[in-house]
């Protein structure tokens, strides 16, 4: 089965139904392995055990950005090729990306509480992550506001691409903004180099998170395709009744 075949929604459904149990199983194994490794990683000599939050925090930050990347590619598919499966991929990715970004923000502020003495600081990295979260919520709100999925898809695709162009600028300007106001309020983690004992579990966790994302994304795409089929059937029912 080639990728082109998967572009057909029916084939995609077949593929999703067959692949999902396997993907789910592999994800569970990867998490079991990764969490085990993470628990075994040494504590930081300054931060103690709280440093282990990193194994959730960093991968979810990556995934939060990866999901926007996937949405952007799907947006190109929507706008250039007008492919319905691209709409579905974009719509399904948004809530998952938002969830990972929220996880990143929550773990970050739980991590920050013992380190900085407060749940939130307007640090450049946290702030751009918050802006990313807001953009996700905006896209989700747009999907929820327009009833016709193909119209919503085009609007959301434009917003996603503008966001993709704007995100680096936001990141850059937030960095610049924060350094301008350097002073008592800027907190930074010590720029410690990462030891292999920490790097390995981190990479395993990143793989596990990516697998989780893929599993959730395929499941969400399947649900969205089924939801659209129901919608089409009901529209046909309304038309058939004179």
């Amino acid at each position: 089965m080639s990728l082109v075949d998967l572009a057909n929604p029916s084939r995609f459904l077949k593929f999703a139904n067959r692949a999902l149990p396997w993907l789910g199983g592999v994800t569970v194994i990867a998490f079991a392995f990764g969490l085990n490794q993470a628990m075994g990683a040494p504590d930081d000599y300054q931060q103690g055990a709280t440093v282990k939050i990193m194994f959730l925090h960093v991968p979810s930050a990556w995934l939060g950005m990866l999901a926007w990347g996937i949405m952007s590619i799907a947006a190109l598919g929507t706008l250039v090729w007008r492919h319905p499966l691209a709409d579905v991929a974009a719509k399904a990715a948004a809530p998952i990306g938002a969830a990972f970004t929220l996880l990143c923000l929550v773990t970050g502020s739980l991590w920050g509480r013992p380190e900085w003495g407060t749940y939130w600081v307007w640090d450049a990295r946290l702030t751009s992550e918050l802006v990313l979260f807001l953009l996700y919520l905006g896209v989700i709100a747009l999907w929820r506001t327009v009833e016709d999925p193909s119209r919503a898809a085009r609007a959301a695709a434009i917003l996603t691409l503008v966001g993709a162009v704007d995100l680096p600028i936001i990141k850059f300007s937030v960095d610049w903004w924060n350094t301008l106001h350097q002073g008592a309020s800027v907190f930074r983690l010590g720029g410690s180099t990462i030891y292999p004992t920490i790097l390995m579990p981190l990479l395993v966790m990143a793989v596990a998170f990516t697998l989780l994302f893929v599993t959730l994304h395929i499941a969400a795409m399947r649900n969205e395709i089924l939801r659209r089929r129901v919608r089409t059937l009901r529209l046909m029912q309304a038309q058939a009744t004179s």
Binding site: V121, W122, L134, L137, R144, W177, G183, V186
Partner: peptide, 29 residues
């Protein structure tokens, strides 16, 4: 329901509050 504005108000609320530190600076005090 679809098209209803129930949660958009909260989103607006969040966005406005987020913009304030950009305007006045990240000074927590």
């Amino acid at each position: 329901r679809v098209g209803g504005g129930a949660l958009i108000g909260v989103l607006f609320f969040l966005v406005v509050v987020t913009l304030v530190p950009f305007a006045v600076g990240p000074d927590l005090a």
